[in-house]
Nucleic acid binder design. Structure first.
Length: 548
RNA sequence: AGGGCUAUAGCCAAGCGGUAAGGCAUCGGAUUUUGAUUCCGUGAUUCGCAGGUUCGAAUCCUGCUAGCCCUGCCA
């Protein structure tokens, strides 16, 4: 019954059509990250799309690191990217690197030169730019363009041998300097970069440009549908040009879709890095970050992330998805999975004045009323308990269902209590509530004599275990205004509180997930939680129609 | 002398010439020992605008308008 209706999108239409026409024998996709940063929820959209599309058509998906720029790439990112994809639950068919194909790419470049379709450029970077023309004016052909094949071959060989300095020469495709598509105005396909590559070391000092390398990588791997984001649309003619020139038989097809944008979220690597560098976040895996590692630490599950990615769809129109949709899917996933327990985040002591001193009663409590198979647990009750500070008001507004002087509420799994007194300190803050309980109202007794409007959660004081709660709010506040995205950073994105949990939760392990009654879903932090003081990250609050 | 793309409810999005799916959000109501969940109800005579073709158009054609992307030896 795990079969889900997979909704339609334009890429599936294309694939279906291609399969019907017999253009391809099987569907091969790839997820091609550059190992220069951490994966985020936007990448998850692409991962889900690529892996599940191939799966649906009985095909396969490669993981391919696009490591054509040694200046930016690092092993650290390779490890984190693999970890994230595996955590999401996908198995790649083959693990490849663009750098695996450097020899073949070099061969293809030489072939281009031999056919008179590429030349070594003497012009400087600035000159190349000037010769390129503008969006509205055609470019000018470079003097280097008329070099002989022989000369180009020798020069390119010298580039490879390291006889030129970084940036001194480039290899360009010879296409059309007057093309209305700037990407076709003799694009650079190889540049000199005297730098050590994470994979090939110092073997090479020339590296292919992404635009030249990518179609070759796809062709070599037999990729059929090369799915990328919209900004590469103008690059497609060059992608097809490269495929045409190559002597590799495969004919991959590039298809572009719109990247994901989320409200209250920044998605670009540059901005995410800036948030870290300027201490608005504590790292790539800060639970407030939209990175896969951040969401994981926050407590998001792979199932929730994937369900979200499936539901937002795949199209070509620019979009801004409400982050509440993401939150919906994690609540949905955890609803049946997470044990319900009681935690008091901001404690206020309550004394049950008619309860005998020193006596503890152990009450039965369901672990998850929506999933009875999860069984029951025992929770203590006695003369002193903690409730939430926000669950008592001296002078409550209308429609306040919680505790206030002379009001009665239910304590979840326990008894009705009636407030008859409270104590304040010299600052006027309430420090203690005095209540009486009614033994007839015990939970499970079937008592129907009176009704109460409110049910509060609590933790018994003597057995309570101390815990830390990290309450996350949106890192980015769309309601604010400003020119720079940093103007939108929410200064209150993290609130840390000390409170109590039930004694039966003494042995929580990293990534254990709970629904704290009336609060929301929480995840045991994998790094800072410890035996003496568990630390819980709030994943998401429960929905609430109550506003004070 | 520019080129490429997009436009269906507050937000995503299906629809592919036969009379507007679904999800999120919102707002009602019922149930409720979570102000949760669940359930039921809630919105487009209309698909950016204007024309045209057709018995019939969100779907085809023409013209507009608005938004996004493109002038890295980044990807």
């Amino acid at each position: 019954m795990t079969e889900q209706e997979s909704s339609s999108n334009f890429i599936k239409h294309i694939v279906k059509e291609d399969m019907k026409n017999g253009r391809y024998d099987e569907v091969v996709t790839r997820f091609p990250p550059e190992p220069n940063g951490y994966l985020h929820i936007g990448h998850a959209k692409s991962i889900v799309l690529n892996f599940e599309l191939a799966e649906e058509f009985g095909g396969r998906t490669n993981l391919r690191f696009d490591d054509t720029n040694p200046l930016k790439e690092d092993e650290e990112f390779i490890a984190s990217i693999k970890e994230d994809i595996e955590w999401l639950g996908y198995e790649w068919s083959e693990l490849r690197f663009a750098s695996d194909y450097f020899d073949e790419m070099y061969r293809q470049a030489v072939r281009l030169i031999e056919q008179g379709k590429a030349y070594v450029e003497d012009l400087s970077q600035e000159e190349i730019r000037a010769y390129r023309g503008t969006l509205k004016e055609a470019g000018t052909e470079s003097p280097s363009r008329s070099r002989t094949v022989e000369e180009n071959l020798q020069l390119f060989e010298k580039m490879k041998l390291g006889e030129f300095a970084t940036g001194e020469k480039v290899l360009r495709a010879k296409i059309d300097m007057a093309s209305p598509n700037i990407n076709m105005r003799d694009p650079v396909i190889y540049r000199i970069q005297h730098a050590t590559h994470h994979n090939t070391g110092d073997t090479w000092c020339i590296y292919p440009m992404y635009t030249f390398a990518h179609p070759l990588e796809d062709a070599i791997e037999g990729v059929t549908h090369s799915i990328c984001t919209l900004e590469f649309e103008d690059q497609r003619p060059f992608y097809e040009w490269v495929i045409e020139q190559t002597d590799i038989a495969a004919e991959p097809k590039q298809i572009e879709f719109a990247r994901l944008n989320l409200t209250n979220t920044v998605m670009s690597k540059r901005k995410l890095k800036q948030l870290i560098d300027e201490d608005y976040a504590d790292g790539w895996d800060d639970p407030r970050m939209p990175t896969i590692s951040g969401l994981r630490r926050r407590g998001y599950t792979p199932e929730a992330i994937k369900a979200f990615c499936r539901e937002i769809g795949v199209a070509k129109s620019d979009n801004l998805v409400d982050v509440r949709m993401l939150e919906h899917f994690v609540r949905e996933d955890l609803k049946l999975k997470a044990p319900r327990t009681m935690a008091v985040l901001k404690p206020l002591k309550v004394v049950i004045t008619n309860w005998p001193e020193g006596e503890i009663e152990w009450l039965d409590a369901e672990i998850n009323p929506e999933n009875p198979e999860m069984g029951t647990r025992k929770i203590p009750f006695s003369r002193e308990i903690y409730i939430e500070q926000s669950d008592f008001m001296e002078d409550p507004p209308k429609k306040y269902f919680r505790l206030f002087p002379d009001n009665e509420v239910r304590l979840k799994h326990a008894y009705f209590i009636h407030c008859h007194d409270y104590v304040k300190d010299e600052n006027g803050d309430v420090t203690e509530i005095h209540c009486t309980y009614d033994p007839e109202t015990k939970s499970g007794s079937g008592f129907t004599g009176r009704k109460v409007k409110g049910t509060l959660h609590f933790v018994e004081a003597s057995q309570a275990k101390a815990a830390e709660f990290r309450l996350y709010n949106r890192l980015i506040d769309d309601e604010k205004s400003g020119d720079d995205f940093l103007d939108f950073v929410n200064p209150d994105s993290l609130e840390v509180t000390d409170g109590f949990i039930e004694p039966n939760m003494a042995d929580v392990k990293p990534h254990d997930k709970f629904q704290f009654f009336r609060h929301g879903y929480f995840n045991v932090d994998p790094y800072i939680s410890n035996k003496d003081k568990p630390v819980f990250n709030r994943i998401v609050e429960l929905k609430s129609s109550f506003k004070l």
